[in-house]
Amino acid sequence: MTTDDWLTDIRDSYDTVAVDYADRMRGVLAGAPYLRAALALFAELVHAGGGGPVADVGCGPGHVTAHLHGLGLDAFGIDLSPAMIDVARRDRPDLRFEVGSMTDLDLADESVAGLLAFWSLIHLPDDAVPAVFDRFRRVLRPGGPLLVGFHVGTGSRLKTQGYGGHPMKVHVHRRRPDRVAAWLRDAGFTVEAHLMTDPDADVPGALLFARRP
């Protein structure tokens, strides 16, 4: 499968489920204290570095972007799905949202003070992740923090039905934190911290904090 094929599948799938996905995500952070704590720490790191624009890459309907804004960050969202961006703009017209792909990140070199990829890498095949991390490093300012969240495990599954019962066609990849950390180091990041959430669940989550030196 070519890059164009799986990117098209991701975009079309999330265009289809955008409204139902947004309804499901609305208020989800209220019941996720450890995720909120991670986002608060990320915001603290950005502020400590002097602040500046923060990119939420793969922002979906913008719920995390809005939360970061509430923490005092100049956050904006980027997502592959035009329908997701439409929902984000509808719900938060005061914030900036753009259609774009992390595989071809349309941001200037060293233009953002922080970057977040919150469970937005889970549909990328393994061979695409290192190049995406290279792009993240390119757009981050020196000293800028990166926060990556993802499903923990091994292997992949094809998701054919999603939010609201709508059809989807996306592969969901689970990854070991040490593998993701190795990709980050290869891209030139310093990995600073690792948090695992719901370690006894069928699909735990992981958060890696890294920094561009």
Rank of each mutant, 00 (worst) to 15 (best):
154 T>C: 01
45 L>R: 15
148 V>N: 00
33 P>Y: 07
103 T>L: 15
141 R>L: 12
100 G>C: 03
176 R>M: 15
110 E>S: 14
87 V>W: 08
31 G>Q: 05
102 M>D: 03
99 V>W: 05
43 A>W: 06
159 K>N: 09
156 S>Y: 06
2 T>S: 15
149 G>A: 14
112 V>G: 08
189 F>M: 09
99 V>E: 13
57 V>M: 10
70 G>H: 04
61 P>E: 03
173 H>K: 11
166 H>M: 02
66 A>E: 13
195 L>V: 14
164 G>A: 09
213 P>C: 05
212 R>A: 15
55 A>G: 07
118 F>Q: 00
113 A>Q: 10
120 S>K: 01
41 L>T: 15
77 G>M: 04
128 A>N: 01
1 M>L: 10
86 D>W: 00
28 V>A: 13
134 D>M: 01
204 P>I: 07
127 D>E: 14
179 R>T: 14
168 M>T: 14
130 P>H: 07
74 D>I: 03
177 P>L: 14
59 C>Q: 03
10 I>R: 12
27 G>I: 00
117 A>N: 05
98 E>C: 06
104 D>S: 14
194 H>I: 11
8 T>C: 02
167 P>A: 14
193 A>G: 09
62 G>C: 06
178 D>C: 08
205 G>W: 08
95 L>N: 03
35 L>E: 14
144 G>P: 01
201 A>N: 13
196 M>C: 02
178 D>E: 15
51 G>E: 07
66 A>S: 12
62 G>S: 03
129 V>M: 10
187 A>W: 04
16 T>S: 12
182 A>P: 00
51 G>D: 10
176 R>A: 14
147 L>S: 11
156 S>E: 15
57 V>Q: 09
55 A>R: 09
4 D>V: 11
175 R>F: 08
164 G>D: 10
117 A>Q: 07
95 L>S: 02
210 A>P: 06
203 V>S: 09
207 L>I: 15
83 A>F: 08
5 D>K: 03
146 L>E: 11
157 R>D: 07
155 G>I: 08
75 A>M: 05
21 Y>S: 04
118 F>T: 03
169 K>I: 00
92 R>W: 09
67 H>G: 01
190 T>Q: 09
150 F>Q: 09
14 Y>N: 04
176 R>G: 02
132 V>L: 03
103 T>C: 10
204 P>L: 09
93 P>I: 01
20 D>I: 01
13 S>L: 10
48 A>C: 03
109 D>S: 14
153 G>C: 11
143 G>N: 07
103 T>H: 12
21 Y>M: 10
15 D>K: 13
81 S>E: 05
90 R>E: 13
58 G>Y: 02
118 F>M: 08
191 V>P: 04
108 A>K: 09
196 M>F: 00
5 D>N: 04
105 L>V: 05
58 G>S: 02
17 V>N: 06
118 F>A: 08
116 L>Q: 04
149 G>R: 02
206 A>Y: 01
54 V>W: 06
125 P>C: 06
82 P>C: 04
78 I>L: 15
195 L>D: 04
169 K>S: 13
162 G>T: 08
137 R>S: 09
61 P>T: 03
146 L>T: 11
148 V>T: 13
156 S>F: 05
44 E>T: 07
52 G>F: 05
65 T>Q: 12
94 D>A: 12
